[in-house]
Design a protein around this nucleic acid. Structure first.
Length: 835
DNA sequence: GATCGCTCGCTA
DNA sequence: AGCGAGCGATCT
C-alpha cells in the first residue's frame, strides 16, 4: 500500500475530557498542548485552569479530536503523571457511584483522591511591593488598615483574612485595596505531597580506597572526636569489602543518635568533604516484620467453612459467611486472601472504622508483611498517597482498610471481604458521595470479575434475605473456635429493682454483684453505654427548665471534665449555669448516664479497681486509643467503660463480664432499623465476653425484660430475629422489599422549609408511579446548625424495574424546586439506601 | 453616596 | 465547591 497523503501529525489538535473534583455533573473539555500529545493517556492527572484565576487537578477520561463548537477550549497546563494513576475500572465505578447515589462523578473523584494528589491553587494576598502608608494617596477604612498592617511582608489566604477581619467574604475589601495598589492578588500552587526522605551520609569518593583512608587517619590522629565518627562509620559500612555499600551510605540519624559521637564532628567532617550528605526517598511504611510467621492451622470447622466458601464461589459471585462471634472468621479470611494473592490478583479486606485496630493490623502484618497496605482515616494524607501509589505500583497486593479504601486504584481485584457487613459505618452520611462500601464492593467486584465475601455474626436483614433467596451463597459457622461457649445473657430488671429499692443510681444490684465477683476472680469487665459525656441532659428540679442548644433542636449534654454543656451536633458550648435562668432555682440536676458519669460511679462502687473510659473524648489525641487498649490488654485496667468503640475488633483474653448499661434506648429508637441495630450491637458487645475455656456472662439492664427482642437475644436466636424483622419489613415496604431514597430539605426558615418539602412531595406524588411516598415530616432532630430539616421518604418496591428513571426524575424535580424563587436557598439532599 | 453583604450564575 | 458580578440594605 502506498500512502497517498502524508500524515501531518504536527497539525492535528487533540482535546481531552477531564473529570474535575467539583460537584458539577459534567466533564470539561481542554486542549492538549502539542508537547503532551505523545504522552497523554486516560487516567493521568492534569492541572487545568478553572474559572477566572483558579487551577485544579483533574483526571483525563478520554482523548479525541473533536473541537468544541460553542466555545474555545483552554489548554491543559501540565500533565502530572507519566502513567495512569486512576484505572479504567475505577473511572467506570466512579460514574456508577454517581448515578446510583445521586451525586456527581466529580464528588466521587474528590472523595477518592487523597488531597496530596489534588494540586490546586489557592488565592493569596500580599502587600504591593511599592506600597507604603506614607506615600499612598489613598485613605483606608479601619478593616483595610488592619489588614495592611497585619500583612507586612507576609502573604495570606482568603480564609485567614476573612477570620482576621471578621467578615464572611473579604472579596470586596480586597478588590478595593487592589484598586488602590496597596495589595496584589496571586495564585499559589501548592505541592501537597512530598515523599518522605532520609538524610544519609557516606564517604566522598576521595576516601573510598585504602591509601587516602590511611592518610586520613593520620590527619585525624589529633582529633579523637572526628576519628571516632569515622571509625564508627567504617564499623557499620564495610567500604573496603563492598564499595557499593558506601554509595548507599548510612542514615545520618544512626550517627547523630549515638551518644558517644559528637554532632559537631560529623558536621566538620562533612565540611571538610570527608563525608557527603544526600537524601533518599523512603517509605512511610517501614518494612516491619515481614511475613514469616507460620499460619495457625484452621480447625476442622474452619476448614469446612473455607471449603464451603470456595465451593460457593464457583456458583455465586457473592457469598455471606454467617459466623457467630468468636468463631474464627479472621483465619478463614487470611487463607482466602493468601489464595487470591497467590492466584495473581489483588485482595481487599474492608472493616468498619472502629474494628480496624492495631491488634488486627499486627496480626495481618505477620502474615502478609510488606505486600499489605493499610488504609485508615487516622492516617495522614501523605500516608494515603503512599497507599494509593503502592496499589498502583503493585507493591501492595492486599489492602486492609475502611470504607474509603474501596476507592483505591485497583485494576485486578480477585477478592473483596466485607467484614461486619451489617455495620452502618460502611455508609457515608455527611458529604456526598453517600455511598455504601459493601454495595459498591459488589458492583466493583462485578466489574473486576472478582468474588465478594460478606462476613458477620449478625448479618443485615437485606444480606441474609439475599442469601435465603439464593442470590448470595450462604456459609454458616455456628460454633465458636475451640468449642468455646457463647456467653450467657442475663437480663437485669431495672423496674423491679427500683420497686424493691435495690437500685443504686441506675446500677442494678445484679450488675454490681457480678462486677464484684468478676473482679474478685481477677477477670476484666467491659461496660457499654452508647452516650458520651456525663449526662445527656440537665434539668431544673423546680420549673423543669432544660438547657438547649442555641443552634440545634437538642438538649445539651453535660461534660464534667470540661465543666460545660456541649451540643453533640454542632459543637456549641456553654458553662453550666449556677442557677436556673427562668426561675433562679439552684436545684439543677443532671439526668441520665453518659460514659463519664458511669466511670465516676464505678470508681465509687469499686475503689480498688482501675476504671478506664474509652469514647470520642478520651481518644481524641493521636495515640490515646492504643494506650487505652494496651493498658487493658496488660491487665492494668480492670473495668473498661465505653461507647460503640468497645464493641468491635477487640479480643481480650480476660474479659468474662460485659454489662450493657441501658438497652431500652437502643430498642425504642424511632427508626425501622432500631431492632436490628439493637440486636447487632448487643450481640457484638456480648461477643467480647468469654474466650476458649471460660464462658462469659452478659448483663443487659432493661426496664422491659419481657420485650420480644431481648428474649431473642437471650437465646442467641438470629434466625428468629430475622423472621420477625422480615415480616415487619414486608408489611411496611421496607428493604429488602423496597429500595429507599430519602430526601432531606434544609432551610434557615422553618416555614420555607416545610413549604418546600410539601411542594416537592406533591411533585413526587404527581410524577412518580408505583412508589410509596412518606411525608414530608419533621425528623427527630428538626434543626441542626440553625437549619430546619424536613424529610420525604420514597419507597421503591423491588419489583419496580425503573429505579434509574425514578432517580433521574427525582433529580429534575429537585432541580425545578430550587429554581423557584421562594425556594432558591433551600438545600435538598438525596440519599439512596439511607441507613 | 459609599460601603457592606448576600444571592446567583458560571466554570470548557 | 469557589469565584466574581450585581444588587439591595445600611450606615454616615
Amino acid at each position: 500500500m502506498v500512502e497517498i497523503f502524508e500524515q501531518h501529525d504536527d497539525i492535528r489538535t487533540f482535546f481531552a475530557e477531564l473529570l474535575l473534583p467539583v460537584p458539577i455533573p459534567r466533564l470539561f473539555t481542554y486542549r492538549v498542548p502539542r508537547v503532551s500529545q505523545e504522552n497523554i493517556r486516560v487516567g493521568q492527572r492534569a492541572i487545568v485552569p478553572f474559572g477566572e484565576r483558579k487551577v485544579v487537578t483533574g483526571v483525563i477520561t478520554s482523548i479525541h479530536e473533536k473541537a468544541p463548537q460553542e466555545y474555545e477550549a483552554k489548554y491543559i497546563l501540565e500533565l502530572l503523571d507519566t502513567f495512569p494513576v486512576v484505572s479504567d475500572v475505577q473511572l467506570r465505578l466512579f460514574h456508577w457511584i454517581a448515578s446510583y447515589y445521586l451525586c456527581t462523578a466529580g464528588e466521587v473523584l474528590n472523595a477518592a483522591l487523597p488531597s496530596g494528589l489534588k494540586l490546586s491553587s489557592e488565592s493569596m494576598v500580599q502587600l504591593h511591593p511599592a506600597f507604603s502608608f506614607e506615600e499612598t494617596p489613598y485613605s483606608f477604612t479601619e478593616k483595610e488598615a488592619l489588614l495592611l498592617r497585619t500583612l507586612a511582608g507576609e502573604s495570606m489566604d482568603y480564609t485567614t483574612i476573612a477570620t482576621l477581619l471578621g467578615v464572611k467574604n473579604p472579596y470586596n475589601i480586597l478588590k478595593s485595596l487592589a484598586a488602590k495598589e496597596a495589595i496584589i492578588l496571586f495564585e499559589e500552587l501548592r505541592e501537597k505531597y512530598r515523599p518522605k526522605t532520609d538524610r544519609r551520609i557516606r564517604l566522598t569518593t576521595a576516601y573510598t580506597t585504602a591509601k587516602p583512608l590511611e592518610d586520613l587517619f593520620q590527619t585525624l590522629a589529633t582529633k579523637p572526636l572526628q576519628e571516632a565518627v569515622l571509625l564508627r562509620y567504617l564499623q557499620l559500612v564495610h567500604v573496603m569489602q563492598d564499595p557499593i555499600s558506601n554509595s548507599a551510605g548510612l542514615s545520618r540519624k544512626v550517627l547523630t543518635d549515638d551518644p558517644e559521637l559528637s554532632d559537631s564532628s560529623i558536621k566538620t567532617l562533612v565540611k571538610h568533604s570527608v563525608f557527603e550528605e544526600f537524601d533518599v526517598i523512603v517509605s512511610r511504611f517501614p518494612d516491619e516484620d515481614v511475613g514469616s510467621t507460620p499460619i495457625v492451622p484452621l480447625s476442622l470447622l474452619q476448614q469446612q467453612a473455607h471449603q464451603d466458601i470456595l465451593k460457593s464461589f464457583t456458583t455465586h459471585d457473592y457469598t455471606l459467611l454467617h459466623g457467630v462471634t468468636g468463631s474464627g472468621k479472621t483465619e478463614i479470611y487470611i487463607n482466602l486472601i493468601r489464595q487470591a494473592i497467590e492466584g495473581g490478583s489483588q485482595a481487599l479486606y474492608l472493616l468498619p472504622e472502629i474494628a480496624l485496630t492495631t491488634q488486627i493490623v499486627h496480626r495481618l502484618k505477620k502474615v502478609f508483611g510488606t505486600t499489605m497496605g493499610v488504609y485508615h482515616s487516622r492516617f495522614s494524607d501523605a500516608e494515603r498517597v503512599e497507599v494509593w501509589n503502592g496499589v498502583l505500583s503493585g507493591r501492595f497486593k492486599f489492602v486492609v482498610g475502611v470504607r474509603s479504601s474501596i476507592l483505591l486504584p485497583f485494576d485486578n481485584l480477585g477478592l473483596v471481604i466485607v467484614d461486619e457487613e451489617h455495620d452502618s459505618s460502611y455508609k457515608q452520611q455527611e458529604p456526598a458521595p453517600r455511598y455504601h462500601a459493601r454495595d459498591v464492593a459488589m458492583m466493583m467486584a462485578h466489574m473486576h470479575h472478582a468474588k465478594v465475601l460478606l462476613g458477620s455474626a449478625t448479618p443485615s436483614v437485606e444480606s441474609f434475605y439475599q442469601a435465603q433467596q439464593g442470590k448470595y451463597g450462604l456459609v454458616t459457622l455456628d460454633k465458636r473456635y475451640g468449642d468455646a461457649q457463647l456467653p450467657q445473657v442475663v437480663l437485669a430488671d431495672i423496674g423491679r429493682e427500683r420497686r424493691q429499692k435495690t437500685l443504686k443510681g441506675d446500677f442494678t444490684s445484679l450488675l454490681l454483684r457480678k462486677i464484684d465477683e468478676t473482679l474478685q476472680q481477677r477477670e476484666q469487665v467491659i461496660i457499654f453505654q452508647n452516650r458520651r459525656g456525663y449526662s445527656p441532659m440537665v434539668n431544673c428540679e423546680d420549673c423543669g427548665w432544660v438547657p438547649k442548644c442555641v443552634n440545634c433542636a437538642v438538649s445539651l449534654t453535660y461534660h464534667q471534665y470540661r465543666h460545660a454543656l456541649v451540643c453533640h451536633y454542632c459543637g456549641y458550648k456553654e458553662n453550666l449555669p449556677q442557677q436556673c435562668p427562668t426561675c433562679t432555682s439552684a436545684r439543677l440536676k443532671t439526668v441520665g448516664y453518659g460514659t463519664e458519669k458511669l466511670e465516676e460511679e464505678l470508681n465509687l462502687h469499686f475503689p480498688n479497681a482501675q476504671v478506664q473510659r474509652m469514647d470520642l473524648d478520651t481518644t481524641r489525641s493521636k495515640n490515646s486509643y492504643e494506650t487505652i487498649i494496651d493498658q487493658f490488654e496488660r491487665g492494668e485496667t480492670n473495668i473498661l467503660v465505653g461507647t460503640q468503640m468497645v464493641t468491635k475488633g477487640l479480643d481480650f483474653d480476660h474479659v468474662s463480664l460485659v454489662g450493657i448499661f441501658h438497652a431500652d434506648r437502643m430498642i425504642h429508637f424511632p427508626d425501622f432499623r432500631s431492632y436490628e441495630r439493637a440486636f447487632q450491637l448487643i450481640t457484638q458487645v456480648s461477643g467480647r465476653a468469654g474466650r476458649r475455656d471460660k464462658p462469659g456472662t452478659v448483663i443487659v439492664q432493661t426496664s422491659d425484660p419481657e420485650h420480644p427482642l431481648l428474649q431473642l437475644i437471650l437465646r442467641h436466636d438470629y434466625r428468629g430475629f430475622y423472621e420477625v424483622q422480615l415480616a415487619d419489613r414486608l408489611q411496611h415496604h421496607y428493604p429488602p422489599f423496597s429500595r429507599l431514597i430519602e430526601i432531606t430539605l434544609k432551610h434557615a426558615d422553618k416555614r420555607v422549609c416545610r413549604q418546600a418539602a410539601e411542594t416537592l412531595a406533591e411533585a413526587c406524588r404527581a410524577n412518580l408511579a408505583s412508589v410509596y411516598i412518606l411525608g414530608p415530616g419533621e425528623p427527630a432532630i428538626s434543626k441542626i446548625r440553625n437549619q430546619f430539616l424536613m424529610n420525604i421518604l420514597i419507597k421503591v418496591p423491588r419489583a419496580t424495574a425503573n429505579l434509574g428513571q425514578i432517580k433521574s426524575t427525582l433529580l429534575s424535580l429537585t432541580e425545578s424546586l430550587t429554581q423557584q424563587k421562594e425556594f432558591r436557598s433551600t438545600r435538598v439532599i438525596l440519599d439512596a439506601d439511607p441507613m
